[in-house]
Write a protein that binds this DNA or RNA. Structure first.
Lengths: 209, 209
DNA sequence: GCGACGATACTCGAAGCCGAGTATTCGAGG
DNA sequence: CCTCGAATACTCGGCTTCGAGTATCGTCGC
């Protein structure tokens, strides 16, 4: 199998758009922006061109024509191939049906939380809580606007998903803060003890087992 | 600022481990495995070595000594610098306190969901629901085992977070399936109509606005 | 009629990341 | 004693991604 061939969802978005009609790369980017797809699929111009090239090499898209208006740069218009249509359906099906563990920055942070002093950690978690609340309020306002504009829910379903996850995170972070503050988190005393030792200039010892 | 310097949390894990004591790269990887950090921070050997090198170039770590036992390959032992300790605290603080929008595969899939036929989409979402349920059961079993083994919650906090998010996702996906099945999802009729047209060989038209 | 500005349409070098490969040692089993 | 697999410790080529740069065209005010 081609290496990392399904690693970048931007390629999937390209296939999906070319499934509608042939376009040139810049138009792909512009269309993604219009439809707010850049909010759920990372878009970077430099990457877009190499992604399209790689799709071409794999014969999932092909050049339809190269046109030039006036003395502007050439526009290379691509179209999807039959193999591309199959890949589109197959890849999209996989993304929807198979949950994969993805790595987030916050999860990484949590897994190293003991490195921070407990007091510092609580303060930072509270900051996060506040920012999440703020972000949710904004997201909900934007969502309300879109509904009023008559945008059907089907076309904003990904935004809804993100909001649901964010809300779950907000509640969990709130609970965690309470538990540390209240002293009921299992392992808290050990945590404080490590940092007392670090404060005394002693080396930190591994805390597993 | 150094380019992309805070893009890979693996570098943060390296700093955190070297904060405890000096190690050589292979040992860093082995320790991450032992402590189950590879579940929350992506670990790849090839990447590890270049990440350590990049930290060295930025003077956040430095070579402590190069030793060789018997005729094995040399082991280069690194230690953290003062600048490295500062970077560790600062970066970790940022990860904990600032929520950032990260892109997941499922979100990308959802945002392109209309490309699939409604019937197919429901089937795939149900598959996901089932897999999420299964994964959650496994995760909870593993969690129970760890608790019995006396591992304090503080050291599994990241796993708890993941489980909470997964459960929220499970419920939401379940609800979405119901809504499509029950026909109450706003935009469903339009969705069916598009696919009727595609079936008739007509070009798909943009569905925004 | 000219100068600033944003949109159009890509290009390119540097850096990052992946994953398979290399070479050695150790211990267990037959 | 010999082999086989797991563990040790890294190396390397090639693809991917980033982000800033280039160059032209339309247009709007002044």
């Amino acid at each position: 199998m081609a290496p990392r061939s399904r690693s970048n969802p931007l390629a999937l978005a390209v296939l999906a758009l070319l499934f509608e009609r042939p376009m040139h790369p810049y138009e792909l980017a512009a269309t993604m922006r219009e439809r707010r797809k850049e909010e759920s699929i990372k878009l970077n111009f430099g990457t877009l061109y190499s992604v399209v090239q790689s799709l071409e090499k794999r014969e999932l898209v092909r050049v339809k024509e190269v046109v030039r208006e006036g003395r502007r740069p050439e526009r290379t218009i691509y179209e999807i191939t039959e193999a591309g249509k199959l890949e589109l359906q197959d890849w999209l099906s996989e993304l929807v049906s198979v949950p994969v563990r993805e790595y987030t920055g916050f999860e990484a942070g949590l897994s190293l939380l003991p490195v921070l002093e407990p007091g510092v950690a609580v303060r930072l978690l509270e900051e996060r809580r506040a920012r999440l609340e703020q972000g949710l309020a904004q997201a909900e306002a934007a969502w309300g606007m879109a509904v009023k504009d008559g945008l059907p829910r089907l076309l904003m379903i990904e935004a809804e998903y993100v909001v649901v996850l964010r809300r779950a995170e907000l509640e969990w972070v709130g609970g965690l803060v309470e538990e540390i503050r209240g002293g009921s988190l299992d392992g808290l005393e050990m945590w404080r003890e490590w940092h007392r030792r670090i404060g005394d200039g002693l080396p930190m010892e591994a805390g597993e087992g």
